[in-house]
Design a protein around this nucleic acid. Sequence first.
DNA 1: CGGAGTAGACTTTTT
DNA 2: GTCTACTCCG
Length: 745
Amino acid sequence: MSLKRGGIELSQEQADIVDSVMQPDSITVVSAGAGSGKTRTMVASVLHLVSEKNVSIDDFALITFTNKATDEMRERLESGVLERIEEAEKAGDWDQLSRWFEQKERIASTFIGTIHRFCAMLLRNFGYTELIAHESEIIMASHYFQAALKDTMNEGLEDSTTNILFDTEQVHWAPHVMAERLKSWYEYIRGRGRSITEVASETLRQNENDDNQKYRNAVATMLEKLENNYRELKREKGGVDTNDLLHKCAALVEQHKNQIGPLVASRFRYLFVDEFQDTDELQMNIIQSLAPRLKHVLVVGDRKQAIYGFRGADHSVIRKIAELNNKTPLSLSASRRPTEPLHKAQSVLFDNMGLRYEFLQEKLTQPDDAHVPKDSLVPFQYEHVKTFKDRQGPIIERMVGKIREYVGQRIHDRHKGIRQVEYRDICVLFRSNYQLQSYHSLIPSDIPVVTDTGGGFFRKPEIVACYHMLQAILKYPDDVSLDLALGTPFLPFNAPNSIYRNDGTNLVLRDWFEDEDDCKEWLKGIRNIRKRMKVDLVPQLLTNMYEFTRVREYYGKMGNLQAVANLEKLVMWSRELMNTEALTLQHFFDRLQVALLTGMEMDEADTGMEDTKPNSVRFSTVHSAKGLEYPIVILPDIGRRLLNDEQMPTFFEIPGWGLDLELPGGQGCSSSFNEWVDHYRQNMLEEEARIFYVAVTRAEHVICMIGHGYDKPNPIGDENWSWKDEVLHAGDSLKGLGKKIVKID
DNA sequence: CGGAGTAGACTTTTT
DNA sequence: GTCTACTCCG
């Protein structure tokens, strides 16, 4: 029996999944390991259905988690279809040829995108009762939020439940800090798909009878006021934020099942979701509600690779959706990615980690014909740098040494046979963008490096900040716009402490700016630009704005040269626009707004070091490398502490119990507060283990890790626990694999 | 022992 | 830029 499906050669377990998707009116849940061919199986399923059933490629909705994964999916689908075309040409099968040519055209109208885009599309096309506002109103929502926040602060001062929060003798925060916290708490709760109203009423019902209950009540009441004010403003003026998008979509498919169902069924017949472990419960419910209307739903995920828990993703959704539908998840466990010896070493490491984390007990197997390379590269290496402080320098030195050592060595490539290692074979993975930036700036210039910093140009914080600053200038003296600019680095001084006052003066933000000495220069800058708006060209005005706000110095000091380069690139962009239109500052602002809200694609600025060298080492964060693979992966600084008391959250939202928090000043904690902190620590260690798993499984041929500090492992769960300890704890079993496979020093 | 000065660390991302 | 931990010197 041939294991080709949709013209793609598959393994038995992959073919079983395709065959399961062929069954009508059902749902298939797949639990897939790293490198087991998730995308391949999905593409094969699409192509197989198209060739076997009377289905067209645009009857599918393919949902991915990131925009990057979207591009990858589209590419793979296109090349799959192109192969069908070539095959039909060779065989001289003209019927097939014209059929696949038609499918190729239809890829353009196939929905391939993130769950957010999917929801926005559903609302726009089918949401006749909950009619979604025009796109420009999405961006307006952030204005309304600021306005609602301000109203809430003023109301909170009058209310006897909440005014204890304004007693700065008790709670040591300036009002603008309180506003900032309220905002982040509000976003935290809503980002998890929870209802503010519900959380508030849960909190008020707590009945703990401790001294701190009044503080929790006060915060809950503030959040509820904020929710009401914001909702009212959005309703009145027609704004929608990204959370509303999902909530409205969930409400739409749930409450108007009978009207929406047939509409959705008329547009889509199949729904495939990739990276399902990064989905949250609300999103799962949307998929679940749609399932009965569709021919087949396929969800694929790997809970070992769930690394978006901080954003509210819940990796148990795979199990939950399987249970809801009475299905046993099919498994996809054979990993084609690593070479045979690397896989052996990875398995020993993961087995050892499995003693600590239950989810790592799902094993990765290998196909019988796994690649055994004939070269002398050591697949699994741990390099120890004997230093305690000043770790960055020595680690960079070691890392650069390894890169130089690898380049030019012989590598036995699975496809091309023996060849030389090039820069482009190497990927260095960092835990944070901060680390990535600071290492990048210290790499010797003879090593070509490209950085891979997640989102595109118009999503970068410095560009968004620039947008807010421009708005503050254009709308001056509008308080809401000033407020938005307040949180950006375009403000070279501290934000005001006392905007919210109850002494009858009703001090507005612009009055504060007028009064404050620090702001004189800044205000002068704004007035100057407003004066010159009609005279100077946009590039000049932008440069002028960078100067008086000293924003380039700010980013320069932080070592964020990419941000400085991006700001320059914005000036270049305005020059380009000038070629095609008479560009006023207002006009430029409008163009920028459109670019921001449509997520217009534009590459980041070159910082000079990388130029157009395609053969470069790649620097990436673990999160943005997800789904990718590289022959050689280097993980620098795996000795970094994972738990940091300073970073422990002081705000929790416990479903069914309400909120618990520690205000600056120490008030607010319930007796269970420490329990939540411990729970958080545990979750954090588990998520870090999954991130480590993702990092280690990016490698096809060689994984090289660099650690520092003590070369003996810390006790399990110790406050100094790091990724290094995972390796050292497995050290003895790893060494047993022999020097040709493992090198630990 | 304590104040002044300095070096190093700073989560992750979707819309 | 801000915070902490560490060093140095009196």
